[in-house]
Design a protein around this nucleic acid. Structure first.
Length: 530
RNA sequence: GGGAGCGUAGCUCAGAUUGGUUAGAGCGCAUGCCUGUCACGCAUGAGGUCGCGAGUUCGAUCCUCGUCGUUCCCGCCA
């Protein structure tokens, strides 16, 4: 008996008896009984643990190295249990709606567009490579062509990009697709799915959810995943500035820029240093400058900007901002994308730092009417905002033909939960002609499109039902519902931020023999090779 | 690719005003005592390349540079 230590695995036989009432321990379910052991057997002993399991405050690299011990903690078990409950609820809900769970391949062909692919060298096909899927996108659409009608899969996806607390190189999506449906059909089904999965995690939500056009989300919140748990909505003062002598901002506006402001209640009390710090923050978000107007308690306005705007215009701005005496407003003028980004982040900063976020809220909303394309300065071309198989809004087909790509809307929709994108989807292109147009708009020649996506375009020519779908980021959803910042806390064996598995030490070296079989030769300098 | 933080005992951390001779605490661990205790208590004890390398200095856990590890963020993530 005295040999038994922490985390030993034992069997004990004996009589269980009621304890004297004064010795009850209410902390444990078994606190009113005890056993007098008659026979004890040690099935496994246990070395001294590298950390105390009850210690909440162990650094993550230690936890990850001994993940099998970390998983013994109550919280980790709870997280995995919640994940299981959510998956089971999703399966039940979708099964009941006659969705078919189908597995799609993990060794597929590399595709341009999107994230960097994980590559797998082929031994049999010399010099060729598979890619791991970034999502089952193409295959689920081919299932629709194949007449499956309703598909889902809890699918592993792989993207070889840098990691974050909410991004792992391999992650899981609840992926689904339906034939003969439109956007509102998918939205209705997914709202039910969200309701059921949230319920499985103990959160009740009301359907339907608000549907907010992308433009409204950007205008009010500076984000395509607005956190509506707090106000501080942005406002437009472009028309007022245009009447003023504020030439720098007017020039920006006349070149297609925009100006947006945010009102901070009670901000008139900010010191010069406070405002400097906020300005620095805005600059770190990419702002060239951050203007402010203080509305004093006595009703006067104070701002360097007053050199350029009249008293009347300052008053108009105050009205537009719905500012009270004692408030401060900040505003930024730049290209739309920059302004949205800066102001959106600033809004989140204030929401957090001013404690405006009610953590008990569960705000779910749809963002709809996304732009189809997004200009990439880096690639010097338009890129698909969602993905290349997203259907453009049929009213915008003429813009597609005339090359007015910046104004083409797509039939895409994102589901947003408390300022986090939970998932997204779209109505897909079911016409090979439209699909070709999109490839062309994305800068792919007909030959390239044929080489990369030929099988897809071909398939679309054989009687493709209209179809639409969506995928939910399972890890992110579970993490939010488990109230944890990092999706690593809801994945049994995650990678660290360097994409390494600290437990197994993957990725590891490959032997010369393995490389030779795969027809692979490293480009690393010899001293870096194994 | 870039920025920021951290790295001291098995774990979590402290370590001065400007660098000084013997680097501490709690938990854990070991041994003993106690035994209605149950996150027991008491006593004693073991446990340190202060991440690594170089530099500055009479002297570096402390300062400088580099490097490695780790976390967060930006870029990137259709």
């Amino acid at each position: 008996m005295e040999k038994v230590r922490t985390e030993f695995v034992i069997t004990v036989k004996g009589k269980i008896t009621k304890r004297p009432p004064e010795t009850y321990n209410e902390k444990y379910a078994t606190g009113q009984v005890e056993m007098y052991p008659e026979h004890l057997e040690i099935l496994s002993d246990c070395k001294v643990l590298p950390f105390v399991l009850e210690d909440e405050n162990v650094s993550e690299d230690v936890r990850l190295k001994y993940r099998y011990l970390d998983l013994r903690r109550e919280k980790m078990l709870h997280n995995l249990q919640t994940r299981h409950n959510i998956c089971q609820a999703a399966r039940k809900y979708l099964n009941d709606l006659d969705f078919l769970e189908v597995e799609t391949p993990v060794l597929i062909k590399t595709t341009p567009e999107g994230a960097r692919d994980y590559l797998v060298p082929s031994r049999v096909q010399e010099g060729k490579f598979y890619a791991l899927p970034q999502s089952p996108q193409i295959y689920k659409q081919l299932l629709m062509v194949g007449g499956i009608e309703r598909y889902y899969q809890i699918a592993k996806c792989f993207r070889d990009e840098d990691l974050r607390a909410d991004r792992q190189p391999e992650f899981t999506q609840i992926d689904m697709e339906m034939s003969f449906v439109e956007q509102q059909d998918v939205i209705r089904v997914v709202e039910g799915l969200i309701k059921e999965t949230f319920k499985a995690a103990g959160v009740e939500v009301q359907t339907p959810f608000i549907q907010m056009p992308w433009q409204e989300a950007m205008d009010k919140y500076g984000s395509d995943k607005p956190d509506t748990r707090f106000g501080l909505e942005l406002f437009d003062i472009g028309d007022i500035i245009l009447q003023s002598e504020f030439h720098i901002v007017r020039d920006t506006l006349e070149k297609g820029g925009i100006v947006r402001g945010i009102r901070i209640p009670g901000g008139a009390k900010y010191s010069r240093k406070d405002i400097d710090d906020i300005t620095k923050l805005a600059v770190s978000y990419g702002a060239k400058a951050l203007a402010n107007i203080i509305y004093n308690e006595d009703g006067t306005a104070k701002s360097p900007v007053l050199k350029f705007v009249t008293e009347e215009q300052a008053k108009q701005i105050k009205e537009r901002a719905q500012a009270q005496n004692g408030d401060i407003i900040f505003f930024v003028a730049d290209k739309p994308k920059a302004v949205y980004d800066i102001m959106g982040r600033l809004r989140l900063h204030f929401g957090k730092s001013l404690n405006l976020i009610d953590e008990n809220k569960h705000n779910l909303l749809w963002v709809v009417d996304f732009p189809m394309f997004e200009w990439s300065d880096e690639e010097n071309r338009f890129m698909a905002m969602h993905h290349p198989f997203t259907s453009p809004n049929l009213n915008d087909l003429d813009k597609l033909d005339s090359g007015d790509l910046g104004n083409v809307k797509s039939i895409a929709y994102d589901i947003v939960y408390n300022g986090t994108e939970l998932g997204g989807g779209s109505v897909r292109i079911h016409s090979s002609v439209v699909q070709q147009k999109i490839f062309k708009a994305l800068g792919l020649t007909e030959e390239e499109a044929q080489e990369k996506f030929g099988f897809m375009v071909n398939a679309l020519q054989y009687g493709t039902p209209p179809h639409a779908g969506l995928a939910i980021g399972l890890d992110r959803m579970v993490a939010l519902l488990c109230h944890t910042e990092s999706i690593r806390d809801v994945i049994a064996f995650p990678k660290n931020s360097g994409a390494k598995d600290l437990m197994s030490d993957a990725p590891g070296e490959a032997s010369i023999k393995q490389l030779r079989e795969l027809h692979i030769k490293s480009t690393l300098q010899p001293q870096h090779q194994h």
